[in-house]
Every structure is written in structure tokens, then in C-alpha cells.
Design a protein around this nucleic acid. Structure first.
Length: 949
RNA sequence: GCCGACUUAGCUCAGUGGUAGAGCACUCGCUUCACACGCGAUAGGUCACAAGUUCAAAUCUUGUAGUCGGCACCA
């Protein structure tokens, strides 16, 4: 069997996933060890409308690496997958399609028909993200796939809603909320993004003060104190960025300490463009040095004004409709006008009346709808809210007492998370949409509200079935907040035994909030909850720490009585090659699927995992390309081993040998185990890039560049022999172990190659997976064996590598043709001579030399190129006729210079009495040893130089 | 306004007290029988700037500049 010369990832990517999935390798049930420790990850559910982007590819890769690593390490592993119903996005998408296909609006067809359409849409097109997840190679358990609107998850949503309501933590109230006039729904603070307005203006409006003579036109003069006098008419000037809201003003406020306005407090102004008279009030909220120090108060259209209004018992005049057109209340001339048209008209009218004092350019940041970018309108509206105080305290206690969750990187996320929790406000949870979990509240004719888990329950509570359910749905993040436990079967009916039994000590504040189990015992589903909750680690982006991570912590603590996850990995953002955020509007996004096509999934995974955890990084195709090359390197190394595998098979006893084995074998085994130990360590600390670097360099540098080359002759020997078979077995076994180490990162390539190795079977599987058909993904992940670390072999191999490298250097610098064989004269102590002698064949081959002469002090002709080696050894290459004496002298001089520079730096250190006294003794010793080594080497080099002169 | 991160080779990035690292690009040499997606050999950095702590600072502290991010305010 011979492999193609170049690895083409297509075939592997098309075949193995299906097999893995079909054979159930992804499900935790594959683990036959009933005592296996669980490991679980839940995927941050992508939107059902979503397409894979680089952020997904990154976080998915990290999760899959961890899952595959843990699975291979014998854990009972669950990687739970699911999608989010994504209320607004999905509703918008289907609305658009409805308009396009049938020229209808959702209102035209009605709620029931519309939601049915959305379900249809979901069944038809909603599977894209799942296909893409399969393409990525994620070892997720599809048998447990969840959707936030599954019946069991919806039950959990209703249960949580009802419980919070019954406790008084969910309430319905009139508040100033963030209203998106385009999506026509309320949004939570987190779904609003502040953005700089392009041409912000601050308008100064003059309100005539009553009790002064009526204003009769004319240009007003501004006095320094902000009160304007024209003739006898007094004005108070207010500054605003939203003039149209003046139509809903119900007061003008000044700071009580502000002397300019002291005498006006208690008076009234005649509100222009209306027939209303509004009071001038004093409130601490007003800052005297901003604007004119006088503020128009519009309680129904501004959060601060709302508060002021409550304090002063002001009327709340709503002048704006849900689509941001003006209401009748705004006046006949304005009713029906869009808010921006109304703004213009108000300004014009003020100007006509001579009441517009001035317009300043003004940098304002305005709230925008995160999704549709429309300017948010603060609006007084009746909505459902969650009081967060109690749950916030649970989360804060958890952080304070147990430092949980552990964030990676801890800085700055732990602090950001804590700070945010500390200033948490009530959460607006109702949404004016049809797609989502309809709020489980029913109303009777009298407007009484009945909150219940089901309509039936509501009817019972109300004593009538003549009820209407609340039309709104819940914020999508409400169901996402329950994701850690709702996906594992929690519906509020069963509670894990740990909770039912009462909490063991450490977290007393929870006890009070726990509900007794509604029904005794658990369901089948709840065993997942017991086994896999809390989940092991959450991998997500920093943009949803508040939206999602914190809320999962709060709801899990409150409703399950335990944290939702131990660790939270916050990965970085993938930027474009110019360091800009990828966005649809900038058209600078890179489609992971294109990258998969071009370089393969495994190379992409390596490139993503190879970027430091938590750090933003600019996307570079070149990086993936280098891992594509790496994949090809692995392919070809395997190709080489397979071409020379006759008689051999994977046999782990072949790499259990003693000190009598060859240096190369002992060395590669030592390197392999060192790599395995370090990779495990790196993964345990979520240092993915560290693991990638270790694997890359082990495989390429150690295994390919040195080990294969060192044992090549033995392996490719023409005549079959026991020795050859043993060497072949050793290399193929080493390769097999290396492939396992690579598997979590490069699942397709490693499976493809592993399946081709001679002698593989499910006997190689981890003990927990012996019954499964052979696959690399169920072999045991090499833990690394400290006893296989062979310092002596590593140091001896360093000497061999140094010798070969020095020869190559001389060859390159002296322009010796590859075809020219040379002689090596090596002066060295007995120990080194022995090492070189044992590796003579390899040294000759790799240095392209015809002979090597070893001696305590070798005689070398003057016409030689020379180098010094560690341990007092010298290398001379006789180059009669070939040597360029000038060049050789220059070469030697350069080396002397380098050594002397280093020497003087070290000598200075040693001269410093403080260093010698205070630095750790071993540090001082190291430097003394190094100085001695340098002195030997440079003395030798100088002798050589003298000999040339 | 408050908080935070970052600034290291041409580029993208590791490294966080003890002699500056990788990949790519560059230069030179190789159709060496696994791989030119390759092999071999070089070159390239006063680790943003300034002060301080220390025997020793790219690494710790403070300040400055630039870049980016989060939060708040925004009449």
C-alpha cells in the first residue's frame, strides 16, 4: 500500500465523521467503565438561522480538542450540542421570506400561522449549522441534541418563570425601556449598543416664563445667567438633543442650588407649540454647569426624566407611538409624523416663533438596536422584568467564597464579571415577538393576571377558562440562561440528590432559596443532570459573558443549587488581516468553510488552537497554510513508514526498552514522553497554543528531521532481518503514539493514517472502549511517562546533532558541493568519542562525510576548516585545495567575537560582588561553568587562527 | 468620565525576573530514492518611551505616548 505523495484532506473528511457518528463514538455511553469520571461541555448554542463563522470555528475547535483529549483519557465524555431559537433574528428572517414569497406580513396571516411558518422554516433550513458542525469534526453527541424550544426546555422555562413570579422576583410594570421602533419590540440593556451619532446637535429652546408679560416676538438677548429677557418677557432656556420630545414635557427642572434660577422655582412656563403650562421644579439631578442648567423633563421618554417625574409627581405624557411616529397627544400638527420629521418641524416652529436660541454641534452617542442598528427610543412601556438581586448575590457569593467560575484567562474577565454583577439592574424579559416562549401569564376580563405552568393551571387558578394569554414572548436569553441544566433534562420536577438532601455546608445562602422537589425521585433524563452537571468547562467569547455566562451561573445556582460549570475559557476574537473586527457590513469576514476547502479542516483547527488563549489575533491564511504543510509532513512521514513496514506492526512493547538500546531510540522515546507530559500539562491549563507548538516541533523537528533520518538506513535496508523488523516496529509504534497525541487537534488526518498502520485493532483502545470497533479516537491518550525521560540520551543526542550541524555549517559556508564527500577529524574525550563512534554511520550520512576519525587529539592538516564543540571537543575538516583561508579566518574570528562578547558580559556579572553573594548559588555556578566552556572554546579557536596566519 | 488590555525580528504572534523565541517572508545552497506543502545553512530585535525596585527587568512598580476594548454618562 502506498500513499499519494500529497495529502488531500477531502477523503478523510468525507468518510470518518459518518463512521464515528454512526457507531456512537460520540455518546458518553460508549464508555464501558461505569466508574469513569464524567467530563462535559455544553456548546454555546448557535442561532438556528446561523452560519458558521470564525468565532464558532475557534471555540468549537477548543471544545472538541478538550473533549477528544478527555475521552481518550478515559473520561465519560459528553459534548452536548444544540441550537438557539434566536427570537428576533429568526422572526425577521421568516418575515422577510413571507414578504418575498407571499407578499404578506405576519399580521396578515396571524400568530398561529406565522409560528407554524417559522417551524416549517426551521425544519427546512435550520439544519445548516448542524451540517457545518459535522464538517468541523466536532465529537458532539447528536443523540442528545437540544433546541431551546424543545418541549422539555420549554417546560423548564415556564417552571422558572412561575417560580420567580411566585417569589415576587418577576413582576410586570411600567418602566422606561429600550424600544426598537423597527423591530417593534423592547430590548434589554445588553442588546443595545452605544454608537457615536454622525452629526449630533444640541438645540437650545426658549420657554417663556409665565407671570411675566406675554412674549410678542422679537430677537431675544441672552444674558450671562441663562435667563433671557426680551423687553419684560422672561425665558428659561433648555438644551436638548431630541427637540421633538418637548411635546411631552411636563416640567422644567433646575438645580436647587443654582442661584440663577432660584426665583423661578415654583413658577410655570407656557410650553410652546402646546397649550400646556408646566412647572419649574428643583431637582438635584440637574447639573448646573451643563447646557443652560435648566432641563426639560419628559417623563415618558427619558429614563432620568422618568425618575424626576416620579419624585415630583409629574404627569407622564406619551407623545410617541411604537413605530416612533408622534401620537395625537403630541398635537394635531405632529400626530403621525416620524420622530425625525417631528424633530425638524419642532425646530422650524421654534425658529418661526423666535424661540430657537441656537443649535450647537454636539458629539452624542446614541443607543442603537444591536441587530438592526436603528436608533433606540426610550419609551414608557408595560413590560415584564426579573429582579436580579437575589440571583446576583448567589453569583457574587459563589465568586467570593469559591472563586467560581474560574475564568481563563483570569485577568481581566473575573473582575469584569464581578463588577458587572455588582451593578446589575432588573432584566427586561418580555419581547413583542411571536417566535419564542410565550409568557405563561393569562389575563381575565378585569385584567387580573394568572401566572401558571400551563393554561389548564391558569384556568384552575382563575376559576374560569375565559382567559387570554399574554401576547409577548420571553427574551431568547431567558431560555439560554437555563441551558446548562435544561439541556440535561431539568424541568423542575426532579432535583439532583445532592440538592434534595440539602446542601453540604459550604454554601449556606443557597439553602433558603431551594425548592423541595415537586415530585420524588428522578426521571431518566435527570440522571444526565446528576452525571454531567456542573459541566466541566464552558468555552465562549467575551461578548456574551454578561448576556449568557453570568445568567447561567445565576439560574443554575438558584434552580439546581450548584454552579453550571467549573471553568470558563474566554477565547479571543478573530480579526481580519488588518486587525479589524470581521463584520458583514465591512465585508471582511472570512468564511471557515472556504478555509476548510482550501487547507483542510485539520489545518484550520491547528491554526485556531495555535493562537494563544483569550488573545485577539489577526487572521492569516499563511498560518493555516503552514499547518496544511504540517499535515502533509505527517502524511509523508507515515507514507515513509508504511513504505518500509513489511514485517512490522504496531507493538507497544517494542518501545519499552532499557539503556542498551541505541541512542536514537532512547532519545526519541524520551522526547515523545516529554512531549506527551507537556501536552497533557498544557491542555490541563487550557494552553492550547502551547500544546500545538509542542506537537509541531516534536513531530517535525524531532521525529522527522532527526529520528527518521537517523534510523533510515536501518529501516530501508534491502535485506529482511530481525534487526530491520524491530527498527520498523519501533518507528511505526512511535508514529502510532504521535498520531494519538495529535488526534484531538487533527482528528481526520490522524484517523485516516492510523487506520492504515499495520497491527492496529481495538486492543489499542483505552480500557473503557474495548468493545468498540477500532478507531484512533478511542485509543488512550498518551499520558507521558516520567521514567522514560532519558536525560543522558537527550544530552548525547545533543552532542551528535551539534557535530552534524557544525559540519553542515562548514559545508554551507565553504561552498562544498553536496556531492563532495569529506573527512571528519574529531578531537574529543573518551566519552564523546564513544557516542560519536556509536553513531558513526548516521553522522557520515547526515554530514555527507566519507569517514570520521576520532582521537583524543586528532592531527589535522593546516588546510582545514574547524569548529569547536561543547565539552572541549574539536572538529576539523581537511580541505586541501578547497579551502579559502581568508574566509576561514573570518569565520573563526566571527566565532571568537561572539564568544568574547558573551564572555565579557558574564565576567562582568561575576565581578559584581553583589551578584556572587546574592544570586542563587546554582546560578553563579552555571555562569562559572559557562565561562570555563567559553574560555576553552575560544582558546582553541585562537590557536586555530594562529595556525592559519 | 471610570476600568482594563496591548505595544517583542519585515509580517502574525509566543515568552512574564536570570544568555531574546516560533511560523511565514527574506538571503544562500540543494531535482539527497517520505515530503519542493520539501531539505540544509545564514541573516534579522538597545523587547514603545522614561524613571524606579532588584545582584539581575522584555518580564515587577510608576509615569508618558500610541492602539484597542468594556462600562457609565450624554439635558
Amino acid at each position: 500500500m502506498e500513499l499519494e505523495k500529497t495529502y488531500n484532506p477531502k477523503k478523510a473528511e468525507e468518510t470518518h465523521y459518518r463512521v464515528w457518528e454512526e457507531r456512537g463514538y460520540f455518546a458518553p455511553e460508549i464508555n464501558e467503565n461505569k466508574d469513569a469520571e464524567p467530563f462535559s461541555i455544553i456548546i454555546p448554542p448557535p442561532n438556528v438561522t446561523g452560519n458558521l463563522h470564525m468565532g464558532h470555528a475557534l471555540q468549537h475547535t477548543l471544545m472538541d480538542v478538550l473533549t477528544r483529549w478527555k475521552r481518550m483519557s478515559g473520561f465519560k465524555t459528553l459534548f452536548l450540542v444544540g441550537v438557539d431559537h434566536a427570537g428576533i433574528s429568526t422572526q425577521l428572517m421568516v418575515t422577510r421570506q413571507l414578504k418575498k414569497d407571499e407578499h404578506k406580513t405576519p399580521q396578515d396571516i396571524g400568530r398561529e400561522a406565522f409560528t407554524e411558518k417559522v417551524w416549517e422554516w426551521k425544519h427546512k433550513y435550520g439544519g445548516e449549522i448542524q451540517r457545518q458542525i459535522r464538517r468541523e469534526g466536532l465529537s458532539v453527541d447528536w443523540s442528545r441534541e437540544r433546541f431551546t424550544m424543545d418541549e422539555s426546555l420549554s417546560r423548564a422555562v415556564r417552571e422558572v418563570f412561575v417560580r420567580l413570579y411566585e417569589e415576587g422576583n418577576i413582576y410586570r410594570g411600567n418602566r422606561i425601556v429600550n424600544w426598537c421602533p423597527r423591530d417593534k419590540t423592547v430590548l434589554s440593556d445588553l442588546e443595545v449598543k452605544e454608537e457615536k451619532a454622525k452629526d449630533g446637535k444640541l438645540y437650545y429652546l426658549k420657554y417663556p416664563v409665565k407671570k411675566s408679560p406675554p412674549y410678542e416676538g422679537g430677537v431675544a438677548a441672552v444674558s450671562a445667567d441663562g435667563v433671557v429677557e426680551t423687553g419684560e418677557t422672561k425665558f428659561i432656556v433648555v438644551a436638548t438633543t431630541r427637540p421633538e420630545t418637548m411635546l411631552g414635557d411636563t416640567a422644567v427642572a433646575v438645580n436647587p442650588e443654582d442661584e440663577r434660577y432660584n426665583d423661578l422655582i415654583g413658577q410655570t412656563v407656557e410650553l410652546p407649540l402646546t397649550d400646556r403650562e408646566i412647572p419649574i421644579i428643583a431637582d438635584e439631578y440637574v447639573e448646573s454647569d451643563f447646557g443652560t442648567g435648566a432641563v426639560k423633563i419628559t417623563p415618558a421618554h427619558d429614563a432620568n426624566d422618568y425618575e424626576v417625574g416620579l419624585r415630583h409627581d409629574l404627569p407622564q405624557l406619551n407623545v410617541m407611538n411604537k413605530d416612533a411616529t408622534m401620537t395625537e397627544t403630541a398635537g394635531k400638527e405632529f400626530a403621525g409624523l416620524d420622530r425625525f420629521a417631528a424633530r425638524q418641524l419642532v425646530v422650524e416652529k421654534f425658529e418661526e416663533l423666535g424661540l430657537l436660541e441656537k443649535i450647537d454641534d454636539y458629539d452624542v452617542t446614541l443607543p442603537h438596536c444591536e441587530r438592526c442598528k436603528t436608533v433606540i427610543e426610550p419609551l414608557l412601556s408595560l413590560q415584564w422584568f426579573v429582579k436580579m438581586d437575589e440571583m446576583r448575590d448567589l453569583a457574587l457569593d459563589m465568586m467570593r467564597k469559591e472563586r467560581s467560575p474560574r475564568f481563563f484567562p483570569q485577568v481581566p474577565h473575573e473582575k469584569i464579571y464581578t463588577t458587572w454583577l455588582n451593578s446589575l439592574k432588573d432584566w427586561t424579559i418580555s419581547r413583542q415577538l411571536w417566535w419564542g416562549h410565550q409568557i405563561p401569564a393569562w389575563y381575565d376580563d378585569a385584567g387580573n393576571v394568572f401566572v401558571a405552568r400551563t393554561a389548564q393551571e391558569a384556568f384552575e387558578k382563575a376559576g374560569t377558562s375565559d382567559l387570554v394569554q399574554d401576547a409577548d414572548v420571553l427574551d431568547t436569553w431567558f431560555s439560554s440562561a437555563l441551558w446548562s441544566f435544561s439541556t440535561l433534562g431539568w424541568t423542575g420536577e426532579s432535583v439532583p440528590s445532592a440538592v434534595a438532601d440539602g446542601l453540604s455546608g459550604s454554601f449556606e445562602s443557597l439553602t433558603a432559596t431551594l425548592q423541595p422537589p415537586a415530585t420524588a425521585g428522578g426521571t431518566d433524563k435527570s440522571s444526565d443532570l446528576e452525571t454531567f452537571h456542573p459541566t466541566s468547562v464552558l468555552v465562549t467569547g467575551r461578548d456574551i459573558i454578561f448576556l449568557w455566562v453570568s445568567r447561567m451561573v445565576m439560574t443554575a445556582l438558584k434552580f439546581v443549587g450548584e454552579k453550571p460549570f467549573d471553568d470558563v475559557i474566554i477565547h479571543g476574537t478573530v480579526l481580519d488581516k488588518n486587525g479589524q473586527r470581521m463584520s458583514k457590513t465591512k465585508m471582511n469576514g472570512i468564511d471557515p468553510l472556504d478555509v476548510f476547502e482550501k487547507f483542510g479542516v485539520d489545518a484550520t483547527r491547528m491554526a485556531l488552537a495555535g493562537s494563544a488563549t483569550g488573545v485577539d489575533f489577526a487572521w492569516r491564511d499563511e498560518k493555516v497554510e503552514s499547518f496544511r504543510n504540517f499535515a502533509n509532513k505527517i502524511w509523508n512521514a507515515t507514507r515513509f513508514c508504511l513504505m518500509n513496514s513489511e514485517g512490522a506492526s504496531v507493538d507497544h512493547s517494542s518501545v519499552m526498552f532499557g539503556k542498551d538500546a541505541s541512542i536514537a531510540d532512547r532519545w526519541i522515546l524520551s522526547r515523545l514522553n516529554r512531549t506527551a507530559l507537556n501536552v497533557n500539562k498544557a491542555l490541563a491549563g487550557y494552553q492550547f497554543h502551547e500544546a500545538v507548538q509542542l506537537l509541531y516541533h516534536f513531530f517535525w523537528d524531532d521525529f522527522c528531521d532527526w529520528y527518521i533520518e537517523l534510523v533510515k538506513d536501518e529501516i530501508t535496508a534491502e535485506d529482511a532481518s530481525e534487526k530491520r523488523t524491530e527498527a520498523r516496529t519501533r518507528i511505526i509504534t512511535t508514529l502510532e503514539i504521535a498520531l494519538r497525541l495529535l488526534h484531538p487537534f487533527m482528528p481526520f488526518l490522524t484517523e485516516e493514517l492510523w487506520q492504515k498502520l499495520p497491527g492496529i485493532s481495538s486492543d489499542l483502545h483505552h480500557n473503557s472502549y474495548r468493545s468498540a470497533d477500532k478507531t484512533i479516537m478511542l485509543t488512550s491518550f498518551p499520558p507521558g511517562d516520567t521514567s522514560a525521560i532519558d536525560e543522558q540520551a537527550e544530552s548525547e543526542m545533543r552532542a551528535v546533532i551539534e557535530l552534524i550541524s557544525k559540519v553542515r555549517n562548514i559545508r554551507a559556508e565553504m561552498n562544498i558541493k553536496p556531492s563532495d564527500k569529506i573527512s571528519l577529524l574529531v578531537s574529543a574525550n573518551e566519552k564523546l568519542q564513544k557516542i560519536f563512534a556509536e553513531n558513526e554511520a548516521q553522522i557520515l550520512k547526515l554530514a555527507k562525510a566519507s569517514e570520521i576519525k576520532l582521537a583524543e587529539k586528532a592531527d589535522s592538516p593546516k588546510a582545514s576548516a574547524r569548529a569547536v564543540l561543547t565539552g572541549g571537543a574539536e572538529l576539523a575538516i581537511p580541505l586541501e585545495g578547497l579551502i579559502d583561508f581568508e574566509k576561514e579566518m573570518e569565520r573563526l574570528e566571527n566565532q571568537v567575537t561572539k564568544l568574547e562578547e558573551e564572555n565579557s558580559r558574564l565576567e562582568n556579572q561575576l565581578k559584581n560582588q553583589n551578584f556572587v553573594e546574592r544570586a542563587p548559588p546554582e546560578k553563579v555556578r552555571e555562569i562559572r561553568e559557562r565561562v570555563a566552556e567559553i574560555e576553552t572554546q575560544s582558546a582553541t579557536l585562537k590557536q586555530n587562527l594562529d595556525a592559519l596566519r
